[in-house]
Amino acid sequence: MAGTLQFDLVSPERRLASVVASEVQIPGADGDLTAMEGHAPTITTLRPGVLKVVSTEGAKSYVVTGGFAEISATSVSVLAERAVPVEELNATLMDQLIADASEATAVAVDKDAADKAMADLVAMRAAAGF
């Protein structure tokens, strides 16, 4: 696979992924970004949203509620506050993620970013049919 990088995703509960990827789409706090081989070194905070990784195994998506991503020319490491593979989502879990995000937005310093994060989660819930 030409143009690859190492991708690792961990949360406090578990390691969710460790694969060689061609691209990683990240819901950054300052906007969405796509990391590919040769990316400039970057550290970004995550906002609630969907993180997508494309590898030889296909595309896999994860709902993340926040955290950090460290990007280099050869790797992407994501330390998520909470991360759930999209295929494991159900209505109860989605409601819990929204409730957790709602609590976080109540104390957020940047209300516009907090409101956007909540809107993203609610839109994800609707798109998933929950």
Score class of each variant (00 low, 15 high):
41 P>A: 08
52 K>S: 10
90 N>P: 09
117 A>W: 01
61 S>Q: 11
94 M>V: 13
59 A>D: 15
83 A>H: 03
99 A>M: 08
107 V>T: 11
86 V>K: 13
103 E>L: 07
116 K>M: 07
125 R>F: 03
119 A>Q: 13
75 S>C: 13
76 V>D: 10
90 N>S: 08
88 E>P: 07
123 A>C: 05
83 A>L: 06
102 S>H: 10
53 V>H: 09
111 K>N: 08
50 V>M: 04
87 E>S: 15
49 G>I: 02
47 R>N: 12
113 A>H: 03
57 E>F: 05
77 S>F: 15
79 L>D: 13
90 N>W: 08
45 T>K: 02
41 P>L: 06
104 A>V: 04
107 V>N: 08
103 E>K: 10
125 R>Y: 04
59 A>V: 04
62 Y>Q: 03
44 T>M: 13
51 L>G: 01
78 V>S: 01
96 Q>A: 09
125 R>K: 15
112 D>T: 13
71 I>Y: 00
48 P>H: 02
105 T>C: 08
63 V>Y: 00
53 V>G: 02
53 V>A: 14
128 A>N: 12
104 A>Q: 11
100 D>H: 02
115 D>L: 10
103 E>Y: 06
122 V>W: 05
90 N>G: 09
72 S>L: 09
86 V>P: 06
125 R>I: 07
105 T>N: 12
82 R>G: 05
106 A>H: 07
112 D>C: 07
110 D>C: 04
98 I>Q: 02
53 V>M: 10
62 Y>V: 01
52 K>F: 05
102 S>E: 15
77 S>D: 14
41 P>I: 03
129 G>D: 08
93 L>E: 15
48 P>G: 02
100 D>N: 06
60 K>E: 13
77 S>H: 13
120 D>R: 15
47 R>A: 14
108 A>R: 05
78 V>N: 01
53 V>Q: 02
125 R>D: 01
64 V>F: 00
120 D>V: 09
85 P>E: 12
57 E>W: 03
64 V>M: 00
42 T>S: 07
45 T>S: 12
101 A>T: 14
112 D>F: 08
46 L>D: 14
41 P>T: 10
83 A>T: 00
81 E>N: 03
41 P>V: 08
55 S>E: 10
43 I>G: 02
62 Y>T: 03
70 E>N: 09
80 A>T: 01
130 F>V: 04
69 A>M: 02
123 A>S: 14
99 A>P: 08
99 A>N: 10
114 A>Y: 10
121 L>G: 04
40 A>H: 12
42 T>M: 14
94 M>A: 15
52 K>P: 01
93 L>F: 06
47 R>G: 11
114 A>H: 06
47 R>V: 01
112 D>E: 07
89 L>D: 09
62 Y>H: 06
63 V>R: 00
62 Y>S: 02
73 A>I: 11
101 A>P: 07
55 S>L: 11
82 R>D: 05
43 I>P: 05
73 A>L: 10
110 D>L: 03
119 A>R: 13
72 S>K: 08
95 D>M: 05
118 M>L: 15
74 T>I: 11
86 V>L: 13
53 V>N: 03
99 A>Y: 05
